[in-house]
Amino acid sequence: MEGTSSYGAGITHALQDNGIHAVEVNRPDRSARRRQGKSDPLDAYSAARAVLAGHGLAVPKDAHTGALKALLIARRGAIKARTAAINQIKDLLVTAPAELRERHRRYPTTLRLVEALGRCRPSAHDDPTAVSVLIACKALAQRIEFLERQDRELTAEIDTLTTTLNPALRAAYGVGPDTAAQLLITAGTNAHRLRSEAAFAMLAGAAPIPASSGKTSRHRLSRGGDRAANNALHRIAVVRWSHDPRTRDYVARQLTAGRSKKDILRLLKRAIAREMFKHLTAPCPIDDYSDLRPTRQARNITLATVAEHFGVWPNDISRLERGLRRDDNLAAAYRTWLNTHYIDAA
């Protein structure tokens, strides 16, 4: 089948439901298509030749991938429409009457501006131009608030689905609902689609490509593959570069060794691709933190006491207890300390 995740999805699922083995083939080579032309019979012959040669075959993605893709498309559409509405508001205020422009210039953030425009009363003005501009801005502000609610709801649905499908991937440092969903969509929730870790790196555009010339010996990232998956790896790398102590230490060592930040980012993305491949192909159980808060409350221990003992902020302990932050080392030490504190207190 060609296009098992698009126009061929229906017949692919029907074949699989009836126990018929189906494989996905790549579209015909563009140069061959230009030479031979295009028609359904020609495409069918090309697909048959590809199957007989065993070239460019893949296992179709399962239905869970389609569910994630639908939610992710809706969320990204809401974010794109929200950004467009914000830009439209700012454009309208640039050419608005001076009174409106000066009044709304004092808001320090876009969020405050949107809230103020959503509560404004256009009928309180006498100038017809000001009334029209405020009506338009109020409609856009209400649209933004609606899209923000959609974003939160869709993100919660994506988070629930990704956590159910692959809790280890979702719990990895720097992997949020959006990035986890994109990696699952790219790889497919059926892990046997990926032949090797190197193949996944090439698929995600994180494979090192030689770019040497003369006495210069270097590599660059692949510009092929799924660019959305590459963007997910990039965001994970940026988050770890900013907040993960181990990654920051690694970056410091590489900078001392004379590597550029671009080369370090390439190495990080390749290492993250290796880690993500393990999570995608061999999902493992993760530590459950749900026992920490009831145990602490049963011991009558405050968050401030725990935070002071471990040298972190109380909010970090609260997020750890609610499963919003993953730190297995801190959780294990916290659990041991709670039991020891109870024994000492007794």
Rank of each mutant, 00 (worst) to 15 (best):
R112I: 06
K38R: 14
F310R: 15
Q254F: 07
W241N: 12
Y289P: 06
E197W: 01
A156M: 04
S132D: 14
R33G: 04
R105Q: 11
H219P: 07
G258Y: 13
P28W: 08
V239Y: 11
G188I: 15
R246G: 01
G225R: 05
H234W: 15
Y289T: 06
S213Q: 11
V175Y: 11
T256W: 12
I343C: 10
T83D: 11
P41N: 09
A48K: 01
S213F: 10
L324F: 09
G66V: 02
G56Y: 07
S123Q: 14
V239R: 07
P28E: 11
R103I: 12
T12V: 11
A333Q: 15
C120D: 05
D291G: 01
Q88E: 10
V251G: 01
R335I: 04
A67K: 04
D328L: 03
A70W: 07
A67I: 00
H104F: 15
V312W: 00
A332R: 10
R152M: 04
S217N: 08
A332M: 11
K261S: 15
R193I: 13
F146S: 04
A14D: 10
T164L: 09
L303V: 02
S213P: 02
R274M: 03
A141I: 10
Q254P: 08
D287Q: 02
A345F: 12
R266C: 07
D316A: 15
A229K: 06
L320P: 04
I343H: 12
A139Y: 02
I286K: 14
Q16H: 05
I272Q: 14
L183Y: 08
P283V: 03
R33V: 05
H279A: 01
G323C: 08
T340K: 11
T256H: 15
T155M: 13
L169Q: 09
A333I: 02
D17A: 14
L221E: 05
L221Y: 00
A252T: 14
A124E: 14
Q182E: 07
D316W: 03
T12P: 15
R220E: 13
A273V: 05
A333V: 10
L233C: 08
D328N: 13
G56C: 02
D151E: 15
E115R: 12
L203D: 08
T65H: 02
E24Q: 07
N230W: 01
T65L: 03
A298E: 10
T340D: 10
